[in-house]
Nucleic acid binder design. Sequence first.
DNA 1: TACCCGGAAGTTCC
DNA 2: AGGAACTTCCGGGT
Length: 471
Amino acid sequence: MKVVSLQLPSGPSMERLPLPFSPTELLWRYPLPWAPPPPSPLGDTKAQLPAGLPPEPRLWTREDVVVFLKWCEREFDLPNFDMDLFQMNGKALCLLTKTDLGERCPGAGDVLHNVLQMLVRDAALLGRVPSSPVTPTARAAPYPPSPHSHPPTPTWAVDGFHHFHSAAAAAAQPNSVTLSPAPSVDSSGSPQRGESMSYVTAYAPPVPATTQAASSGSNHSDSDEEAQFAPPPRSPKETPLTSPAPQNHTTQHGHYRTQHREFFPNDMPESNTNGRLLWDFLQQLLNDPTQRYTNYIAWKNRDTGVFKIVDPAGLAKLWGIQKNHLSMNYDKMSRALRYYYRVNILRKVQGERHCYQFLRNPTELKNIKNISLLRQQMSPTRVAQQPVVKSEMKEERCDDEPVDEDMPTDLSMAASEPWRKRARPDPANIPSQHDKHRISTLIGDNLILKRETDYSAESYALNLRSDKCEQ
DNA sequence: TACCCGGAAGTTCC
DNA sequence: AGGAACTTCCGGGT
């Protein structure tokens, strides 16, 4: 499966950001709702259209339609279309509904529909603001510069992690930017040799060599994108992988790749979440090897799982695209993040805006999914009996402690907070609003110690051992 | 004003 | 059908 580097429509800092989704995972998500002036929402995809194909699908001839369909087959690894069913011009093609397309090409209707929608939308935008023609060469032409193209990079965002060589970046792209493959780490792939592996390594995304080879040929070079998405420098303390700070990009990447190949074998099974869970989505953005999303979200301390949402609105839009909730905003997305508090996947870093901390490593999270969620109920009374520990969010390490197996992992209200059941329990046992708030606080506070423990490299290794035992 | 919090109800997908 | 994982909306606090 090839990856199309879809471009986000511009918004602040949205320019030229390829979304991390494979076509089949993403394309249905379009069309996009916000339409500030171009750059094109189709971006690279549009630019990769066959030369000579008009940018406006509705102007296509029958022959153009065939060319387009053939291109889609190749580009998106779609099953071959029955061209007899597409004896129509572009205008007619665009009138087909998703269902229509699905009937004509089972399994690819959504993709086709959404590609068309994007093209139509893009053509409309181009109509308003004439821009570069849709040619293979147009791709290399950068979009009009925007003052928002490169939002401020957090000072903590690193300086040892140099730009990848363009070929390497391109090679890394398929896995790094596709939400289909496993999330940051896979339970079956990584822990075996991971006893001494740090959190960093566990979070590092896969860069299988075979994928590189497979992808580098048919796709365009990313050299131009690399220039656009050159990752910000990283702090030397950032990770063992990057320290001491390498002088050579190729060496850097080689090391990186070597590490990943060790922990992410090529036969790694696919994720069971496909980036459709918010935590997984965030992890994938955070761990993008080419660091293209650091303008949106970036590790603040990868070892402890602390990250910062650099561009809340932008990130929310990305998430909205991912989930096809195009009115997504930070308020809504943050609500989803807050639901993670109760299941101890996340916590807020007190006093720092847009700063959160993962409380579970990806292996854990994935394992939880794999074992059908250990639905350990954490009763309010039980929680309330636990000591309250207020912990300042520093990168302090606590004693090693195994993963709390009693952690609720069910995001539903009922699982962790039974009073939220609509069929309410005995009223005598219902906490008051104040109590509820306190309990929630207790849940969060009480687990802080553990969280910071879990995210220390030592305990992460310990968790891995635990994972290993489970396997 | 923006961020943050959590309740409540609704939606979508599996 | 039912549950999980959000999404949407909201009132309140900082």
